[in-house]
């Protein structure tokens, strides 16, 4: 607590963190170097691409770890003996409302992913919202109803594909003779200038992140809600 008096003043533009050359460079040069108005997305997906890629891997690992912790392998009889939490009656109001809301939520999630360059948003937020729409389906109906749309195998495939899309953009620039995740060289296989290629590659990377986050969020929920058996939700 004695360190509080050493902190910079509130909102000081000349504090060490704000006047550091790297931050200033991100603010002033992002638009020239990447043609993306949203600096947060540009720094997230381009300048700090390694960071974000391994954050995605961390999320993927967490999802796998939860399945490994909770899943019972083999003995199904002990699971079936457990009494159900309560019997679920179909409710007209909840059913109709969720049927209306879920497509709108998914459309909004796609907008957030695709428009992350120009407004707040991006892969993480859009992925979480997209996963929340499946969670809403599982909460309002049953876990089985959601499993019909997104079975577990497809979910895990999606999560892996997301990481691979991200790594694929990195490897693509590696193959074309640049550093890993240096998107500017990708203009050779895209109909764009090098600067626009960075912007378009960021969109691709965000889509990869969104795949993984969507899949893992729904996977974590369905494992936690069914105690690992994936049979019956809340």
């Amino acid at each position: 607590m004695s360190a509080v008096s050493d902190f910079p003043d509130w909102g000081d533009p000349n504090s060490p963190a704000n006047s550091y050359r790297l931050s200033q460079h991100y603010v002033t040069e992002t638009i020239h170097e990447t043609s993306v108005p949203n600096m947060v997305t540009a720094v997230l997906a381009d300048y700090r691409g390694y960071d974000t890629m391994f954050e995605t891997v961390v999320i993927f690992t967490a999802g796998i770890a939860i399945i490994g912790i909770l899943r019972r392998f083999g003995n199904d009889d002990k699971d079936a003996a457990k009494p159900t939490l309560y019997t679920k009656k179909p409710d007209l109001i909840i059913d109709t409302t969720c049927r209306l809301m879920i497509p709108i939520i998914q459309l909004f999630a796609l907008y957030v992913i695709a428009h992350g360059h120009h407004s707040p948003g991006g892969g993480f937020q859009g992925g979480v919202i997209f996963g929340a729409s499946f969670i809403l389906l599982a909460v309002s109906r049953d876990l089985q109803a959601a499993q019909k749309w997104v079975p577990e195998k497809r979910i895990l495939n999606l999560a892996g594909i997301g990481v691979l899309i991200y790594a694929g953009f990195g490897l693509g620039s590696l193959l074309l003779g640049q550093n890993f995740l240096d998107y500017a060289i990708l203009h050779k296989i895209m109909p764009a200038t090098p600067i626009e290629a960075r912007s378009h590659s960021m969109l691709g990377v965000e889509i990869g992140v969104a795949f993984t986050v969507t899949a893992i969020m729904f996977s974590i929920y369905s494992n936690l809600a069914s105690n690992g058996s994936m049979k019956e939700g809340l």
Binding site: N38, V40, T41, L85, V112, P120, G121, G122, F124, Q125, V128, I129, G131, A132, I135, V139, M217, I220, Y221, L224, A225, N227, L234
Partner: peptide
Amino acid sequence: DVAFTEAAVGAGVSAVFLIATVLR
């Protein structure tokens, strides 16, 4: 961006995770 993420993650998904575990 941080506020948006927190609104989706903290207020939405993590509360749902906690409720799922509490009910289980």
